[in-house]
Design a protein around this nucleic acid. Sequence first.
DNA 1: GTGAAAGCGCTAACAC
DNA 2: GTGTTAGCGCTTTCAC
Lengths: 362, 362
Amino acid sequence: MMVQLNCVFKCVKLSLTGMAKATIDDVAQLAGVSIKTVSRVVNGEPNVRPTTKSRVDEAIARLNYRPNPSARNLASHRSHRIGLVYDDPSAYEVPSAGYVIGMQQGVLSACRATNYDLLVHPCDYRDPQVETKLRSLIEQARPEGIILAAPLSNMPRLVRTIERTGTPMVRISPGKPSRKRPTVTTNDRQACAEMTRYLASLGHRRIAFITGHHGHKAVSNRFLGYQDGLRDSDLTFDESLVIAGDNSIGSGEAAAAVLLDRRRRPTAIFAANDDMAAGVVRVADRLDIDIPAELSVAGFDDIALARQIYPALTTVHQPLQEMAERAAQLLIEADRTTGPAGGTAVIPARLQIRESTGPAPR
Amino acid sequence: MMVQLNCVFKCVKLSLTGMAKATIDDVAQLAGVSIKTVSRVVNGEPNVRPTTKSRVDEAIARLNYRPNPSARNLASHRSHRIGLVYDDPSAYEVPSAGYVIGMQQGVLSACRATNYDLLVHPCDYRDPQVETKLRSLIEQARPEGIILAAPLSNMPRLVRTIERTGTPMVRISPGKPSRKRPTVTTNDRQACAEMTRYLASLGHRRIAFITGHHGHKAVSNRFLGYQDGLRDSDLTFDESLVIAGDNSIGSGEAAAAVLLDRRRRPTAIFAANDDMAAGVVRVADRLDIDIPAELSVAGFDDIALARQIYPALTTVHQPLQEMAERAAQLLIEADRTTGPAGGTAVIPARLQIRESTGPAPR
DNA sequence: GTGAAAGCGCTAACAC
DNA sequence: GTGTTAGCGCTTTCAC
C-alpha cells in the first residue's frame, strides 16, 4: 500500500514537473514485479504471462517510462547507432544535398523502426587527413555499423580505413558488385540500357551521351548501359556522340553546346545525371531548339530539379531512399559477431517518362 | 611488473585484434594511477600534477583509449546529444535540402568541437500527429537540447510541444525576435532594405517584389525590408509591383510572367528567395529579355542554384551555418539547470552581388 | 593532488 | 514464468 502510494506520488510529480524520469525500478515497483520482468516486457521477450504483461504495460504508461538509452547501451554492449558517411556537400551545393537528404531519410526510417540512432558524418575526401579524422570519429562515437555512400564507397583507402576499425560496413553504389563485402546498389547499367532502347523506340538514331564524373564509378556504369542499349537496338556506337561531363550543370551545358552546334546534330541526348541534362535543356532553350519536338533529353537520378524544370525531365528514378534503408536494415539485423553477410543487394531503378522526350523529328 | 606486462599484452592484443576496447581501468593500471585520476585527465579537470598527467596521456595513447560514451552519459546524467528538428524536405526536394544540409553542418561543427552527438529529426508539419511523434522521439532519444529550424520555429503548437518535454530549445529564425526564448536569426529585414537601396542606387525606380510563403514568418520580414528600402530611397511603394509567391520556382515564374507582360514593366525584380528569383530568370530568358541590361533580378538565401544559373544571381547571403552553429553552442554552453538564456542573437546577412543586377535601362 | 567507494539504469546469466 | 545477482565503464562524493 505504501509502495503504491509512493508510486502514485512519483507519477504525479513526474507529470507535473517533468523532473527526473521514471526508471525501470519505478515501473517494477508500481507493477509489483521485478525489474527483470519489466525488462522482458519492454524488450518483447517471451515467457511473460499476459496478465503480468498488461500490469507492467499499465505502469509504463502511467509513469510514461522510457528506457534510458545510455544504460541500455552500456549494459548490452551495443551502441544502437548507425553511422552514415558521405561526401560533404559544402553548404548550399544543392544537388548533392538532395542526395544526402534522401539517404538520411532512408536510414532514418530503418532506425526509427528499431530504435536506433543515426549519426551523420559528412567528410571531405579531398582533405588529406580524411582518414585520420574519420577513424577518430568512428572510434569516439562507436557506431555499431557504418553506411558508406557513393562516391566514397569506391575509394579503397577510405573503405580500408573503416574496415580497420572493425566496424561492420555496408557500401552504397560502389560501382561494381561485391561478393565479399555487403553492398547495396541499383542497376545503373540495365536502367540506362532500357532508357536508350526507349529513345531508340521513339525513332531516334543519333542518340548522344554525356558521361559523368570519372571518380564516381556507379555513374560510369551508366555509360556501359548506354552502349548496351544501342546494341540492343541495332544502332552503331558513334564515339563522336559521346562527350565527357563531370556531373555538373555547367558541364552539361558545355557538352550540349558542342553537340547542338553540329550540322547533323543528335536528335536525342542522354546525360548520365539530371544536372547535366538540365544544362542541356537550358542550352537548347537558348538556341531555340524545341524539346521534345526537335530534341529529346533524358537524365538519371530523378532529383527535384527534374520535375521543376520545363519541360519536365524524362529520367531514371534512382531508389535512393530504399537503398539506404536496406543498407541500414542489413546492419541492424546482422549477426552481432560476423556482421552483415557479403554480397550485393540490387534495388532496381525505373524509367520516369516525362515531357522532355518524344518521337524523333523526321 | 606483472601489471605492466599484463597491460602491454592488452595493448598488443588490442591493436592486433581490434577486439574489446581499452577501458579507464586499463589506462589507470598502465599509468599506475587510480581511475579517478585518469578521469581528471580525460576531462581536463585541474589538480593533476603535470608528470602524472603525461604518464596518463601516454597510457591513453598506447592503448588508444576512448571513453565509452554510454558509460559517461549514464554516470553524468547528460546525454551529450543535440536534436535538430526541421521540416522534412521529402527526398529530392532539393532547395530545401540545401537549407537542411547547411544547418546540419553548422550544428555538427559545434558538436565535433565538444564531443556532442547530433540527432537529426526531420518532421512533417502537415502530419496531424506531428506533435505526438515529435514528443515521443524526444522522450526516447533524450537530447540535452533541441534546435528548431524555420519555418517550424514559428509554429506555436510545435514550440509548446517541445517546451512541455522540458528540453532546452533554441529557435532559428522564428520571424520575430524573442526576449523570453533563446533565438538565433539573421537580419532579413535590414538586408532586404539594403538590397533594395542597392537596386535604387543603380537607377531603378520600378522595383518589383515577389513575396514568399506566408507560413514562413522570417521570409515575410523580407517584404518589410523591401518597403523600408524603397522609403530610404525616396521611392513610393506601388502595390501593383508586389506579387505573392510561395517560395517555389514555379511561383517565381508565374509572378514574372505577370510582371513582364505589362507595357511599363519593372526594371528590377527582387524575389524573397533564390528559387523564385531563378524562376524570374527563366521567364526573362524565354521572353528574350536581357539580364541585367534590360532587367535586374535579385534573390535571397544564396543557395547553390544562385551560382549555377546564368547569369549568376545577385542575392543576399544568409549565414545559415553560422546561425546553426551558434544555436548549438548556446545549448552546449548553457547552464545545466536553467537552460540557455532568452534573447535573440542576430547573425548579419550580407549582399552577394553577382551578374544578374546592373544599371537601370534608360 | 590523489584515491576509494558508491552509484547511474539497464541487461545477462543464472537460479528457482 | 519470474526473480536475484553481477556487472557494463564511467562520474560523483568525499576522504585523505
